[in-house]
Nucleic acid binder design. Structure first.
Lengths: 118, 118
DNA sequence: CCGTTGTACAAGTATTCAGTTGTGTTAACC
DNA sequence: GGTTAACACAACTGAATACTTGTACAACGG
């Protein structure tokens, strides 16, 4: 279950659109932070608001986008709404991105070291 | 070499910014298509322009963004510029996104089927 | 009830960014 | 050299979207 089976080539436009839309959801620092905070467990809007020191409306809005994308789930309890990670896969994505970033940084450092030496 | 070693929690802001920036690069259908086309091997701007039926300036611009992000490499030959995939990892990212998408679609279908039955 | 608390929605503003247009630059060919 | 072709860069325009402000709604406590 490693590979998506039989990915059509070239990738059809509607699928490209879906993929891009998915990446767009993760293309905002605030949403990355929200997911990162939710990695420690479910949290209410107020808790997230305080943890990220952002406005309630802003937090609620971004959570709505994540919910709409199916990346988090919402559970209402009294007046509070508790959000939780619904798709653990997002962390694999972030880890891979971090891996690529580290690789690039290492290569840059290697180039710099070589540059200093000559 | 599966996990990024010792990811700090919470993820520091500058790293969050870098991650989001990375996702933002992939958040555009045109760039996804360019990478998809380059999966078949290096290609010049003109070839990509024709394959995607887009303007030369637009293709060149998006390739510049991909180049700046370190996802593709550029090789000049005469008046032509040949671009190639520099970071194969992007395809793993896309595959994972496709996996998540498929999972969601399957769950939706399951819900629909159940809804019809009752 | 009535006020407080927690959350979501809507309108307005500001910013960001994609796509086009126009132009500059470099290399091959006559 | 002059011309053509391939690519890249900069300014402009329009659309998408993030963030703020204001408000509405629901649940709980007095």
């Amino acid at each position: 279950m490693a590979m998506t089976p039989s990915m059509p080539r070239p990738v059809p436009d509607p699928l490209v659109e879906l993929i891009a839309q998915r990446f767009r959801v993760l293309a905002e620092p605030m949403r990355i932070k929200l997911l990162d905070r939710l990695r420690d467990g479910p949290a209410s809007v107020g808790e997230l608001q305080e943890a990220l020191s952002a406005s309630q409306q802003n937090v609620s809005k971004h959570l709505g986008i994540l919910l709409n994308a199916g990346m988090v789930s919402r559970t209402r309890a009294g007046t509070s709404a508790y959000y939780a990670i619904a798709d653990e896969g997002v962390f694999e994505l972030c880890d891979q991105v971090c891996g690529s970033l580290r690789k690039q940084i290492d290569e840059l450092e290697a180039l710099l070291a070589e540059g200093i030496r000559r």
